[in-house]
């Protein structure tokens, strides 16, 4: 029995060890070495890369990343909750609506991002249309700013918010809402006093699933944010390409991971062992 269990475990354990743990160790080692002249790393070991993160310039980028990820998560929650509520209460059509929520996954994220850029740029569909109707005389700055980045992130990660919210809402006993009405609570107070508190696990799970990928997002900020709206993902990427500072890139990655894990730890402590995912 024990041997059988090991046999089942072995493939995934091996995969994780070689393809996940090993690179992680390599990155950890890189982050502690010195910068090579043409990229790469050389001895001696040093903590210099980590101390450089505390440079206000980089702290600002880190702060910006948290801010953008936080706003995106909040917007996903504000948009996703009513949507999940609607789907959970649409009876036999629920399956269809869930399929629609996941429909964007059928196309590459990169292509969808380019599609957004075609819509948002100065000569894009939206600005052309608005200019043609005479509502505006100059194109609106829709692309290459924080607005565009947040829009792209919210668009990309909304399904990750909707799905866990839907799961908790769907499990909600309808009798509880009837009980709330029966005890005198109209629909809005019932939502605030019963539905929302009971949705906490879904809200937490959805927020984690959106916030963490937003924090480390690279593609969206890079393509839709232009040079001005740099986030930590782009900064890391730069270190391994144009800046040729591998130890610093590795240190940044590791610090981001540490921050994320710390955050998760706090959230899981505060939720007192509720099922997060």
């Amino acid at each position: 029995m024990k041997r059988l269990r090991l046999a089942f475990l072995a493939p995934s354990a091996l995969l994780l060890a070689t393809l996940f743990l090993a690179p992680l160790v390599i990155v950890a080692v890189y982050s502690l070495e010195s910068r090579g002249a043409y990229g790469g790393v050389t001895p001696p070991f040093t903590l210099e890369s980590y101390s450089r993160i505390l440079d206000p310039l980089y702290l600002k980028i880190l702060w910006r990343s948290f801010w953008v990820a936080g706003v995106s998560t909040l917007l996903c929650l504000l948009l996703g909750f009513p949507l999940a509520l609607f789907i959970s209460r649409s009876g036999p059509r629920r399956g269809l609506y869930l399929q629609l929520v996941m429909l964007p996954f059928w196309t590459s994220f990169l292509i969808r991002t380019y599609a957004w850029m075609f819509l948002l740029r100065d000569t894009g569909l939206i600005n052309t249309a608005l200019l043609a109707t005479g509502l505006i005389s100059e194109p609106l700055p829709l692309l290459y700013n924080d607005f565009a980045v947040i829009l792209g992130l919210v668009y990309g990660f909304l399904p990750f918010m909707v799905l866990p919210l839907y799961t908790t809402l769907e499990k909600l006993d309808p009798a509880l809402l009837e009980a709330a009405a029966d005890l005198g609570a109209p629909p809005w107070p019932a939502l605030a006093r019963v539905t929302l508190p009971l949705c906490r696990p879904g809200i937490l799970a959805g927020s984690i699933l959106v916030f963490i990928p937003c924090l480390g997002a690279y593609l969206t900020p890079d393509l839709m944010g232009g040079g001005k709206s740099i986030m930590i993902g782009t900064l890391v990427q730069n270190q391994f390409t144009t800046s040729r500072d591998w130890p610093f890139g590795a240190a940044l990655s590791f610090s981001l991971m540490a921050l994320t894990l710390g955050l998760l730890y706090i959230v899981s402590k505060r939720s007192r062992g509720e099922d997060l995912l």
């Binding site: 509880l176 009837e178 009980a179 029966d182 005890l183 005198g184 019963v194 009971l198």
Partner: peptide
């Protein structure tokens, strides 16, 4: 339901 002075004890009790 929230406008009626009638109250229900549900079969499953429906405690929050």
């Amino acid at each position: 339901p929230y406008q009626r002075n009638v109250s229900t004890v549900f079969q499953s009790y429906a405690l929050f």
